[in-house]
Design a protein around this nucleic acid. Structure first.
Lengths: 223, 223
DNA sequence: GTCTATAGCGAGATAGAC
DNA sequence: GTCTATCTCGCTATAGAC
């Protein structure tokens, strides 16, 4: 677990310091289950994961999972909700002192930081994004909240039609997440591990460059 | 089924004209099953679809599915392979008479045309793109083939590092597919059906604009 | 709150008649 | 090639002791 994630989990759950009778901490099992569920959901997908898998990873009894979460679907929903809450939280408000261009670069940086520390989040969302998905409401609400959080920045420069703020929002998202969703199959094209430090840096540079070209275009179209 | 798809299926399977004993055509069941499998795989995901669902949609007996395809996983693999073959086929070679800029715009257009006619393809791929996915090989090979098909066009203008052809390939893919993968949850942000004709047109215009800005930047950096 | 034991269902896959 | 019938297994979820 990275330092970043540690901070994240502290924020979301707090590190319980309550003691009940012995060494076990109250309510610890509940969050253990939630955290244990993330890895298999992200790597194999909801339906391919059994509650037994999760219980084993969390080192608790299978029945305890149903005690804390009504069913497997609820467990996944909680995982998704936690991730979206953390993502919104991670988009720290931009510094109004900076230029719009710098603010957007800062947004991109914090977006990338968050995804790099929480790539499971992307894989889970992507897996659930099906036309008949059971979790579309959670995802839709999460995206709407994220959009609301950044549109005042995008809206100032963008315009109508092809240059509408929502188009840029979607394009930024697509540009960022593509690298992580496709990472498992990019090794052949990249000829090396796409998630290595140097390749991640190259991707970041590319994305900042793309942003700059868009800004150049927008500024040109305003004058 | 659209005219485009009709042509596609004719290409891939041919319309069998052989007659056996009665009105049934030989081998028709096999392709019926393959086609019937696409919709549920795309809308609910592999694990949530039962072979019985597929058999009912194809109007054949469940056992027949296992006769033609060894198991459910094989069936999905065949669906994926057909889509990638069709996608590669759909990327008609660009006209060398045109400028590079025009060639890339043409590539974008044919990419979008294909995805609009085959959005199931995107949903299935996206759903299977998990770190421990069982179909990563098919997807990796498909992507590598697609990249090989377009990199001579991209390679002429792009450079090294942040401007490497593979970066543009991934960015184009991300920009295009984002709209379709997120379509099920974009209605709230878009305030209307993202897949309506006018919204699809707006998205197209945006993407062509983005391409143009990137080209402007590349040309500026060359001089 | 945590465990053992088990109910009960639906799934993938096969056997064998026609 | 296509069907009916069935086997077998693993899964979600619950009952109930402690």
């Amino acid at each position: 677990m990275s330092l970043h994630e540690l901070t994240l989990w502290s924020m979301l759950y707090g590190w319980s310091t309550m003691t009940s009778h012995a060494s076990k901490k109250k309510g610890e099992a509940s969050s253990n289950i939630l955290r244990a569920a993330e890895e298999p959901f992200a790597s194999k997908g909801f339906a391919a994961v059994s509650v037994r898998d999760i219980a084993q990873l969390a080192k608790v009894n299978k029945a305890l999972v149903f005690y804390y979460y009504d069913n497997k679907a609820t467990l996944l929903r909680k995982v998704l909700e936690q991730y979206y809450a953390a993502h919104v939280e991670a988009l720290s408000p931009t510094d109004a002192e900076l230029s719009l261009r710098e603010q957007v670069h800062a947004l991109l940086t914090s977006y990338l930081d968050f995804i790099e520390d929480n790539s499971r989040y992307i894989h889970i969302v992507q897996h659930e994004l099906l036309p008949n998905g059971e979790n579309l409401k959670v995802i839709r609400d999460g995206m709407t909240l994220l959009f609301a959080r950044v549109k005042h920045v995008l809206g100032e420069l963008s315009g109508e039609g092809a240059l509408h703020a929502r188009q840029f929002f979607l394009s930024f998202s697509g540009l960022v997440v593509a690298y992580f969703t496709y990472a498992p199959v990019l090794d052949q094209i990249w000829d090396s591990d796409p998630l290595s430090a140097s390749n991640r840096r190259e991707r970041r540079e590319h994305l900042h460059w793309v942003i700059d070209q868009m800004f150049n275009g927008l500024e040109a179209s305003k004058s």
